[in-house]
Simulated scan of single mutants.
Amino acid sequence: MSRLLIIGPPGAGKGTQAARLSVRLDVPAVSTGDIFRDNVRNGTELGVLAKSYMDRGEYVPDSVTDDLVKDRLSAADATGGFLLDGYPRTIAQVRSLDEYLAERGESLDAVIQLTADHEETVQRLLRRAKEQGRSDDTEDVIRRRLEVYAEQTAPLIDLFASRGVLVSVDGLGSIDEVTDRIVQALDGLGITAPAA
């Protein structure tokens, strides 16, 4: 049973690694980006609201995000563990998540920080925008998202480090290389894949 968070700047490869770790550790990957995009695609009230923020490269307000994530973590498949991707992004969201998990007698087991060169992540995101036709990934929006990350999310790194749950992993290299680095780092914390 693992309760994990993967954190890092936009374009560091969080979604790719979250999907791989989800399978390897047999826990659901819970991506706020996916939740938002599903709502945008389906034209829900939340989707329209979320899109207005996403198109500007801003974060969706905490209250909306907190409720969405809590709802997802209460699903049956997440009771045995989960891997959060894209949440929490602010100190206020960390507090909300801490309170929610404490009510369940739980806490995060590890926080995986993917690090990546600033310009490399911009180029990755521009390539992804072309490949996937993502309207929220223009160069100006990408650079704004990186600024917002530095301002609001980077302070979480120090918080999780002070709790002794942070492992930093270089997010550059092949997908397999990065996955291997993460698995090694988690092994060091005693977090391993369940026996088949």
Rank of each mutant, 00 (worst) to 15 (best):
A75E: 14
Q93V: 03
E103P: 02
L166N: 10
S96R: 10
P61E: 01
G15E: 07
Q152V: 04
A154F: 00
L21V: 08
T44H: 12
V40S: 13
T153M: 13
G173N: 00
S96N: 13
E131Q: 13
G57K: 07
S22L: 08
L126V: 10
G105T: 04
R24E: 08
Y100I: 05
S96C: 09
D98M: 09
P61I: 08
T32R: 09
S96A: 15
F36R: 00
V167M: 05
L5C: 12
V111E: 11
L21N: 01
R134K: 06
R24N: 09
D176M: 02
R95Y: 02
S107T: 10
I7W: 01
P194V: 06
L5P: 05
V122I: 14
S22G: 15
D55K: 06
S107F: 01
D71M: 08
D98T: 12
P194C: 06
R20Y: 05
L126D: 03
G105R: 07
A196Q: 10
G80S: 13
M1H: 10
A116P: 01
L108H: 02
G164D: 04
G164N: 04
P10V: 03
D109L: 11
R144M: 07
V40A: 11
E58H: 10
V141Y: 05
D140K: 09
R163C: 12
I157S: 08
I35R: 08
D71Q: 13
S52K: 15
A50S: 12
P88N: 03
L25P: 00
R56Q: 15
D117L: 09
V64S: 09
L186R: 00
N42E: 11
K70M: 13
L166K: 11
V69Q: 11
V69T: 07
L5I: 07
L114N: 09
A116K: 00
I35D: 04
V183Y: 06
R181F: 00
A161M: 04
L146D: 09
T179P: 04
L159D: 10
V60W: 07
F160I: 03
G105Y: 00
V40F: 04
V48H: 09
V48F: 02
R20M: 13
R124T: 06
A92N: 09
A76T: 08
M1W: 00
I157Q: 10
R144A: 15
F82T: 01
S107C: 07
D34Q: 14
D77P: 02
T90E: 05
D117N: 15
D66P: 04
E58S: 14
D187K: 04
G173E: 03
P9E: 04
M1R: 08
A161I: 04
S162G: 12
D62E: 11
R134C: 08
T44W: 08
I35M: 15
E131C: 05
A161Q: 00
G164P: 05
A154W: 00
Q113H: 12
E147R: 14
R134D: 06
